[in-house]
Nucleic acid binder design. Structure first.
Lengths: 224, 224
DNA sequence: CGCCGCGTGGCAGCAAGGTGCCAGTTCCGC
DNA sequence: GCGGAACTGGCACCTTGCTGCCACGCGGCG
């Protein structure tokens, strides 16, 4: 029958100090998975960065999944993008969701969720949840948003390579799924030259496999 | 200081009957907003439809926002799409998120969340949450997923393939530009199995080259 | 128990992709 | 005309990707 949860499964903390004091070790103790969803990397700063400063930082162990999901606000200017790229360089994956994430959320190892609430009379509140169903739901929703979010690359202001008409034609034949053999004949050039073109294209697309090249090409709007 | 939530703010219900008995009025009582995130319209059926059958159905009042968010599985075949279109015709907005929503969630008027958990010994459990921060977070995440989800119109044509989590992982490693060798090791499977998976994936993507598969994968929002 | 179906992994062999090398051609500018 | 840079295509060789075949292990099922 209906069963009320034990009270320690959900706790509200008031202010950053209390967050650090009560949840710092929790955050640092993440082992397999560390998910963050927030508007930008500075939202949590007052509290979480204070914790991080004391070494209470989740360790980037091998096999650890560390994902940070932000809103477009996090890439509003070039400076912000640079800071994000620096974050990404230290290990975590970073993506930008199209929609605003008004409430920051952290999920630790799929077992604990830390949810930021609106400030009450100037003091930020944080809710620590351990109820399995609730944490699983939040984790699932973050995963869904993550899935449709763009990688940082789309925002790093990397100038999109300007492709010649021939390059576009080659990308189209590649996208058509032909073999190099038939594609080259179709384009009226030798196999050798065709492959040379493809190699050059992959260079400009910064791709190391044809699959990756396909993804990148699609991002540029060609290939389909 | 730390404050433990009052115990009635989070309750776990066991089984559909209990859901109907204890939360039926809650669901029917939604006035401004009714959000559902689930894999497909039939996941909740045993419990919620039973409640609906007794007239405990949220009323489509003017000004009421009623949104139903499903996964690609909900539009896996033409029959399912038809049923969804019928649902949409009665009022609610329906969208399809690219990613799997493994845990069903309902949010009522931004004040109450009902989260489905995994069945325990055959009995489905539902967790009713009223903690404001938790509900607000879940609502925000559903909104973010909703924002990037596609309308039903995009699917009334051909059904988009329903990819498993493993498939997504494989597409991501492909998109990362690894060789099969390193990719398979990274995913902890043999080279042979990895290639088998890739072959299967290319089949479902209807691609004849890896480049083409990359393009198709990008169209589905995975691989980057 | 044996038998099945099923998923996995190793191996072999082939197909496809990728590249260094060199010869031939074209198109400059001197 | 001459030399050289730039581009092309053929050849050879290697890597990578792809798949058929078979063996092994595992969980039902009679």
């Amino acid at each position: 029958m209906a069963r009320t949860m034990s009270t320690d499964r959900i706790v509200t903390l008031r202010g950053d100090q209390e967050l650090v004091a009560r949840a710092g070790d929790l955050i640092a103790g993440a082992r397999q998975e560390f998910l963050v969803a927030a508007t930008d990397p500075w939202t949590f700063s007052p509290g979480v960065n204070a914790a991080f400063a004391r070494g209470k930082r989740p360790h980037m162990a091998p096999g650890m999944v560390m994902r940070k999901l932000y809103t477009p606000r996090a890439v509003a200017d070039a400076e912000s993008v640079r800071r994000l790229l620096k974050i990404a360089a230290t290990g975590p994956e970073v993506r930008i969701a199209a929609a605003p994430l008004t409430h920051e959320a952290i999920v630790l190892d799929g077992r604990t969720a830390i949810l930021a609430g609106a400030p009450e009379s100037g003091v930020r509140t944080y809710t620590v949840v351990r109820t399995p169903e609730v944490v699983a739901s939040i984790r699932s929703l973050i995963a869904a948003t993550w899935e449709t979010a763009d990688g940082l690359a789309a925002f790093s202001g990397r100038p999109r390579p300007d492709l010649t008409e021939e390059s576009r034609r080659i990308l189209r034949t590649l996208g058509a799924g032909h073999t190099d053999e038939t594609a080259s004949r179709h384009l009226g050039m030798s196999l050798r030259t065709y492959r040379r073109r493809v190699a050059e294209l992959m260079e400009t697309l910064d791709a190391t496999s044809r699959f990756q090249a396909g993804v990148r090409a699609r991002d540029l709007g060609v290939g389909g």
